[in-house]
């Protein structure tokens, strides 16, 4: 039986990624089809795909620099083609690192590497940091955030050692701001931007958590929406509206299987698809 990704989301399985299975589940939870595509399979399989997700993990063990070895892989030629043609592409965590190292993001100069996801800078600690964060949505229309209201706060967890968006090129930064490409920024539960740790958990410039390209079809985000796609995944002590909702669902496993805050990113894709039909 020939494999086909027609109208499905392809999740690229680079060697060493480790979030591919739960990402498939999260996409399917909104009623879309999703399957894995191994990095060395025929890229032509992606031709009719609804979208592509580069999932989280440690592709090629983060050797040399997180994301960079995958960025040089053959399959990225195809992703480049798809990105240019306006197909939705989402990079989560390590996937975001791949998209940044490929120059898809910010994409102001095509395929020019204008950003970096540098090692976290944190108060009193370094290296890997796993925690829940809050994201403030804003900026341009992006396929992957289209169902999120402007200024809406979405809690989603992070888990990474290199998630600090930064650039040396202030023109690029100004361009990204002008274009509204910084669609997700770390904020407090109440939606305030605070550049200090732990609100901004990695020292990201402008508290950047997710950056899309100018056209809004490609998004690179460090937080993991697939780990926040069911209510049961929300920590009971999170606080705020979602924490409260989670706490109230205690004792009712049916309610716990309802949507969590992160599902909105996949829901956005579904609505985008329906809008196009």
């Amino acid at each position: 039986m020939a494999r086909s990704f027609k109208d499905k989301v392809a999740i690229i399985q680079f060697p060493g990624v480790n979030c591919e299975y739960e990402t498939v589940d999260a996409v399917r939870s909104v009623g879309l089809g999703a399957d894995l595509l191994r990095w060395n399979e025929d890229p032509a399989l992606l031709e009719n795909a609804l979208g592509v997700i580069v999932p989280g993990g440690f592709s090629y063990q983060d050797r040399i620099r997180a994301g960079v070895v995958s960025a040089k892989d053959h399959i990225m030629d195809k992703l480049s083609e798809l990105a240019a043609a306006g197909h939705p592409i989402l990079g989560i965590c390590n996937g975001a690192q791949v998209l940044v190292e490929s120059g898809f993001i910010p994409g102001i100069h095509w395929e020019s590497v204008d950003l970096a996801l540098a090692p976290n800078v944190m108060e009193d600690r370094d290296g890997y940091y796993c925690s829940w964060t809050h994201l403030l949505h804003g900026g341009t229309d992006c396929v992957w955030t289209s169902a999120i209201g402007n200024e809406e706060v979405v809690p989603v967890p992070i888990a990474h050692a290199e998630g600090r968006f930064t650039t040396d090129d202030m023109e690029v930064l100004e361009g990204m701001k002008k274009n509204g490409q910084i669609v997700l920024r770390y904020c407090t539960q109440a939606g305030q931007i605070d550049p200090s740790f732990p609100t901004n958990p990695n020292g990201s410039l402008e508290s950047m958590a997710g950056v899309c390209n100018r056209e809004g079809n490609v998004l690179a985000m460090m937080p993991h929406p697939e780990r926040a796609s069911w209510l049961r995944q929300v920590p009971e002590d999170l606080g705020g509206g979602w924490g409260m909702k989670r706490s109230k669902a205690g004792g009712d496993s049916g309610k716990m299987e309802a949507a969590g805050p992160g599902r909105i990113f996949f829901e956005s894709l579904r609505r985008w698809k329906e809008g196009g039909e």
Partner: peptide
């Protein structure tokens, strides 16, 4: 760029 350079990212 995607095609050029591997060992370091000059942005950090």
């Amino acid at each position: 760029s995607r095609q050029h350079g591997l060992l370091l990212n000059p942005h950090y």
